[in-house]
């Protein structure tokens, strides 16, 4: 009985301490679970599943005269909120150029789960949480390739996607486009949005 009382007493102390902190729950999904996770299903089958979503306009180097194989895009997905970045959740998709456009997030049931670049170059997580910063309620996505202009995303809770394209002579990363992706509930990872195709200064906003 004494042990039980001690446990209660210990819990009480822990509870009062815990009540003073924010109830944070962040999640790091595992690959085996990912295939069935709602977020993955949402991304693999966007709300308008039969209509591919496109990134437009393409960067100049990704034209029909420049073979798709030389214009690969990479997509990362991160979770962030207005308090900063947390629970980073990374995923890549291997994209292709079709009819002058990069197809994103369609038919990705075989999405690669590791971070080796699809062109065979060495493993290369393009960026991670600590490379991003929060300024006021804006998320600052650093420009890629050392010198590109950072992209500022107005505060918005949810996920964002980052698409990166090699530059024309393939000697480095040239551009980063960020795609905020709102969710109804970031923790539950339910999807309630689709990628929009309206471009403003390199930032493609989200419908829904």
């Amino acid at each position: 009985m004494a042990a039980h009382d001690e446990k209660i007493s210990q819990n009480r102390r822990k509870l009062f301490k815990a009540l003073s902190a924010a109830p944070v729950v962040t999640t790091f999904s595992s690959g085996s679970a990912l295939a069935n996770a709602s977020a993955h299903q949402c991304l693999a089958n966007p709300p308008v599943a039969s209509t591919p979503q496109y990134l437009e306009p393409l960067p100049a180097e990704c034209s029909d005269s420049n073979p798709g194989a030389n214009c690969m895009a990479y997509v990362e997905r991160f979770y962030w909120d207005n308090d900063g970045l947390s629970g980073t959740h990374l995923q890549y998709w291997n994209n292709t150029v079709t009819d002058g456009r990069i197809v994103v997030l369609t038919d990705e049931t075989t999405a690669t789960l590791f971070t080796v670049n699809p062109d065979g170059s060495d493993p290369d997580p393009i960026n991670t949480s600590w490379n991003y910063s929060v300024s006021g309620s804006n998320l600052i996505v650093p420009g890629q390739g050392g010198g590109a202009t950072p992209v500022s995303l107005p505060g918005k809770t949810g996920y964002f996607l980052l698409e990166v394209v090699p530059n024309a002579d393939l000697t480095g990363i040239q551009e980063a486009y960020a795609y905020p992706q709102a969710t109804q509930d970031p923790l539950a990872q339910s999807c309630g949005t689709s990628l929009g195709v309206t471009a403003t200064n390199g930032v493609h906003w989200v419908d829904g």
């Binding site: 822990k14 301490k17 815990a18 109830p23 999640t27 790091f28 679970a33």
Partner: peptide, 14 residues
């Protein structure tokens, strides 16, 4: 059950 790793704050953990 889900294969997910969670990082819980004090209160949710308790």
């Amino acid at each position: 059950a889900t294969g997910e790793t969670h990082f819980l704050g004090d209160l949710p953990a308790l």
